[in-house]
Design a protein around this nucleic acid. Structure first.
Lengths: 107, 107
DNA sequence: TGCTATATTGGCCATATTGCCATATAGTCA
DNA sequence: TGACTATATGGCAATATGGCCAATATAGCA
């Protein structure tokens, strides 16, 4: 995963589809969806999220950094523990939409 | 863009997030969103879609092939012209959701 | 059949994404 | 301060994605 240097949330006036694509891409990953789903049920520590998605802790950290860079989540430090929470709870609607598409499409 | 060999719509029972991620990824591209948006207003020829998104015709073709592989669109040939239409019109809800997230997130 | 229009496929290259390891940072506590 | 815990960052290699060009269908028509 690439390192996220800056906040990716400047709106491109030219094409709204570009911004929507960015958001969708930020969410279009199994681990990140799992993270968002979990956060939709409340604030959560990195450790918990790591336990949830597995893999290397640094990988989880980078997924979180990416979500943060897109303004989807926010972090808060309490001692050595860092907690994340959703900044845009409506992302959950995307789950519903995606599921709906999966059902609606023909096989 | 990679060539799409097979239909990508087998459901992974293990993790619903994996399937949702696939759908989101299939849509997470400016050109493909433009295409879907256009198709949401009715069937459309490849030529029209090409005129819409620009670039090389083969690139448009591959975007369409990808959407088709994910069961989002369907094609129909009439003479030398190929028409595409949405198989899952509810994908439009994703636009609303994405826009909502863009608004809701803090900057 | 040969010619044209429309669209798709194959190949290639540039770039992006992902995930691991190693290392660094931040905070707590002895 | 030093040791320890919890995260984050840098770097790298493997893989995926995107876009162009060239070549290949596929259908209509002279």
């Amino acid at each position: 995963m690439a390192n996220i240097a800056i906040m990716v949330c400047s709106m491109d006036k030219r094409n709204p589809f570009s911004n929507q694509a960015k958001i969708l891409r930020a969410l279009a990953h199994e681990s990140r969806l799992m993270i968002v789903d979990r956060l939709s049920r409340g604030e959560c520590s990195v450790g918990d999220l790591h336990e949830l998605v597995g893999g290397d802790p640094s990988t989880v950290s980078k997924h979180l950094a990416l979500l943060r860079a897109h303004g989807v989540v926010e972090d808060r430090r309490a001692g050595t523990t860092v907690y994340y929470k959703l900044l845009a709870p409506c992302v959950c609607n995307l789950f519903t939409c995606a599921t709906q598409v999966l059902k609606e499409r023909k096989r």
